[in-house]
Design a protein around this nucleic acid. Structure first.
Lengths: 213, 213
DNA sequence: ACCTGAACACCGTTCAAGT
DNA sequence: ACCTGAACACCGTTCAAGT
């Protein structure tokens, strides 16, 4: 058991998993080479035998987080597939919220990310879009989902409702005649499943409208 | 002149402007309290007379970047106003690309940000949406724009086209029958005005579809 | 009132040395 | 082959002291 642990500790994958766990537990700021090494009971410099730089480690952490999720198979209406793809990407991203910051500077990601793209392409080509537009439509969905996870809260808290209300209420009504009275409505858009589903409906309806237009 | 400079140097606004300039010049990572103080010819600790913490300084930097841009007035078709709002927000964000990272953990921003919201609300209420849906519709646009700026490149480079092509081409065709042959189409979606305008059209068409549905 | 150096508890990484 | 401590050049911030 001691042997298993001390061996199982020492591979790129195992170290990346430990780093991911640390990030989930204490946030991205808590992940330092020194701290991670201490947590794994090794000298700091030992990490550099597995990862050339911290950036290299971060790549591996993002990869480790990509993990397990299966994208949907495409059968049935194309909108259903795209809806499932979008929800699946959101759920996958939401499992490790701190990592969204890391994904900012990693425009594409590993092969696993492409499985969602593949499922979406099957649906969109099936719906009758040409390849250029299928790619653009999927990217629009992708950007909406990533934007949601990056800038919205997963669940709305009473705290954030209160803050949004206070902020809107404090605006001068002559300059902001509409928003200053809409704190409650604005607050409801700052996170949660309902806002996500509303925006997803909008994007999918917009894509659908291009089939008849 | 020397007096003007040494006084003009020393206010929250002036310091925030200098910090913003440093960030634009060398990126967010270059902004440290010590470095900024050196650049302003003051002791590091002098900065703490103006900002309680670095986080406080960063808030002021985001604020300083909000700066000058005027949102559109609403007259004419509501879609035109929303299109102008979206383009205006994108242009404003694109002026200081490094700051998008900072905006992640600042869900709402100062009063200036609300001027875009106000213009959008005027258009959406005029179009016939109720207040709850007007707020949701604007948030969907907002998330699309922020997602675009955060995850897409402003302009597509040949370099990124090459990389996307290589990545897609390297996928096993049996597992990725569609995407592995779509490197060129995927590459075109990774940035640029055309992709932005495509997605914006989609979102606006989706919102419009809810008026008749 | 306004400014600041020294010190503390951290970073990532190079280099040379240990087994 | 694999591991690692010391050292270097950085951080943000507290504290006590300077004018």
């Amino acid at each position: 058991m001691a042997i298993l642990v001390s061996n199982g500790n020492r591979s790129r994958e195992a170290i990346a998993r430990a780093a991911l766990e640390l990030v989930d537990r204490e946030g991205l700021a808590a992940l330092s080479m020194r701290r991670l090494a201490a947590e794994l009971d090794m000298g700091t410099m030992t990490l550099y035998g597995y990862f050339r730089t911290k950036e290299d480690l971060l790549d591996a952490v993002v990869d480790a987080a990509g993990g397990v999720r299966q994208p949907p198979r495409h059968d049935g209406p194309w909108e259903d597939t795209l809806r499932a793809v979008a929800r699946g990407m959101r759920a996958g991203l939401a499992r490790h919220p701190s990592l969204i910051e890391l994904r900012l500077r990693r425009p594409i990601g590993g092969p696993r990310a492409f499985r969602f793209t593949e499922a979406a392409m099957a649906a969109l080509l099936d719906a009758g879009f040409d390849r250029a537009e299928a790619a653009r439509a999927f990217r629009a969905i992708f950007l909406y989902v990533f934007g949601t996870v990056a800038f919205n809260e997963g669940e709305l808290s009473d705290e954030s409702r209160r803050r949004a209300n206070a902020l809107a209420g404090a605006l001068p009504p002559d300059e902001f005649p509409l928003v200053s009275g809409m704190g409650a409505e604005v607050a409801e858009t700052l996170g949660g499943d309902d806002q996500f589903e509303y925006g997803l409906d909008v994007v999918l309806a917009g894509i659908a409208s291009r089939l008849q237009g």
